[in-house]
Design a protein around this nucleic acid. Structure first.
Ligand code: SF4
Ligand code: SF4
Lengths: 144, 144
DNA sequence: ATAATAAAAGATATTTTACTCTTTTATTAT
DNA sequence: ATAATAAAAGAGTAAAATATCTTTTATTAT
């Protein structure tokens, strides 16, 4: 469904939202540990999220990654679009390249419903929504 | 969503179901052309489907791949499970490895609905169902 | 100013997925 | 029997995704 990069991006964002108290930053090392992902790999992903203003970053001591209230309130879709592109919303289940509703693949009608569900899930839910479950201890970001 | 192999497997199966009149076989070359896929790649995939009895095959002149009525009436899920495994039904959106409903990831509740939809789509629809749309010219397997 | 810290950037390595090419085996028509 | 046909099998290549390692740059505390 998502690329590994995208999974890490979502989990990292939720982790930052959760850890951050006030305006304090959280370091990649801690993030990587908290979501059980390779440190330098998530670093690269977070750099991109930062460049695109989905999260914020600070260099030097006490530096790290953080998110503003506004950033935490963004839908998860924003992250997905940034990392994986819009394929999940637009691509075909069967990989047809130039299909249309007037010339659909056999699975189109059935798959449309799924795609709508996915779109809904990703744009109705914010980083905060998923973070809330974490804070309420109704969910985790890490198992082993 | 599906691997390329799986996309080809589904499209090829529908193509065989559609082309096959009586017990006649259809050659890989024709199949590959009909679904716009690399010939030797689909050959390999079809060999596996054949080994696992999801389709049938015959060597020599007039040989090729074909499907029995029973095979055509199987749900598309059978093909997916064979090629991609059950990941699509069981894996986590966020890639947690040992999660459970009692220790779910933040997206679990939302994602459960999607997964159920996918499962439904794949087990309620047979190769025949999708082939019917093709025969009725309400769908295509190939665009360019 | 200096040293320590942590992200940014870039280069390299590994693994998985996708695809191609060649040889072998089974079947059939002549 | 023989030649033609088409799948089966196997080896090899290419590209993309994932992961690691190293160097540079910005920030801050001393
Ligand atoms: S018709 Fe719909 S499901 Fe089919 S290829 Fe196009 S977008 Fe995908
Ligand atoms: S709880 Fe559900 S969505 Fe989350 S990782 Fe497990 S299966 Fe996936």
């Amino acid at each position: 469904m998502f690329s590994k990069s995208c999974e890490y991006a979502i989990k990292a964002s939720i982790f930052i939202a959760q850890k951050r108290e006030g305006v304090q930053c959280v370091r990649v090392k801690e993030i990587a540990k908290g979501i059980n992902a390779p440190e330098h790999f998530v670093a690269k992903i977070l750099q991109e999220l930062s460049r695109k203003k989905v999260i914020s970053s600070m260099k030097g001591p006490n530096g790290g990654f953080c998110m503003s209230e506004a950033q935490i309130n963004k839908p998860v879709l924003d992250i997905v679009l940034l990392i994986d592109g819009d394929g999940i919303l637009n691509n075909c289940v069967l990989g047809l390249e130039h299909c249309s509703s007037s010339n659909p693949c056999p699975m189109h009608l059935e798959y449309q419903k799924i795609k709508l569900g996915i779109k809904n899930m990703l744009e109705k839910n914010t980083i905060r929504d998923f973070n809330n479950l974490l804070v309420a201890k109704e969910a985790v970001l890490f198992t082993d």
